[in-house]
């Protein structure tokens, strides 16, 4: 999807990021910290911001791209307002996690790592969320929903519509 970065609307966030860079730039291994802060602030890593970071830190854009694409939590495209992480850890898998994922894809009409056209939801297939006692589970933003069934999952998603 074509996407124009809105400098004006993101002014505050850009300033916060610049302050963060300023405060932390002498820390060793700072790139991960900056990228995490960027992802947190903007919900993804906008190309324009990566260029800005490169300028401020002297870290080449190519190196940043290498790091950003290595880790699954970084995204180069905007994510939905609500990120649904479907756990596909072992405990969830043997208790039907895959079926839950398929049902959510069917409900939202999108696949894994995609975002709904209204920008409301995106789906991630995540590895173990560490709530195996409640398997199968999903995590919406930071909240865990457990002991799901194919029939109960729609109700959970509707809370975020």
């Amino acid at each position: 999807m074509a996407f124009e970065f809105n400098w004006e609307g993101n002014k505050d966030r850009v300033n916060r990021l610049l302050n963060f860079i300023e405060e932390n730039k002498n820390k060793k291994g700072v790139l991960m910290l900056i990228l995490q802060e960027t992802q947190e602030l903007f919900g993804y890593l906008p190309k324009e911001i990566l260029e800005l970071i490169s300028e401020k830190t002297n870290i080449p854009l190519s190196e940043m791209y290498g790091v950003a694409t290595f880790y699954s939590q970084f995204s180069l495209v905007p994510k939905g307002e609500n990120v649904i992480g479907v756990c596909l850890g072992t405990a969830c898998y043997v208790k039907g996690g895959q079926e839950i994922l398929e049902k959510i894809q069917e409900i939202l009409g999108i696949g894994v790592a995609e975002t709904t056209p209204d920008g409301k939801f995106s789906i991630d297939a995540t590895r173990c969320l560490g709530a195996c006692g409640l398997a199968p589970v999903i995590m919406i933003n930071e909240k865990i929903y457990g002991r799901l069934t194919v029939d109960s999952v729609e109700e959970v998603i509707n809370q975020y519509r």
Binding site: K28, V30, L35, Q36, V67, F70, F74, T126, R127
Partner: peptide, 20 residues
């Protein structure tokens, strides 16, 4: 940031150092 291999000691250190 969501990379299983970073549980491996040397990969973890690479990650702390800010690399892949």
């Amino acid at each position: 940031a969501g990379a299983f291999v970073c549980g491996e000691g040397t990969a973890l250190m690479e990650s702390i150092e800010g690399r892949r």
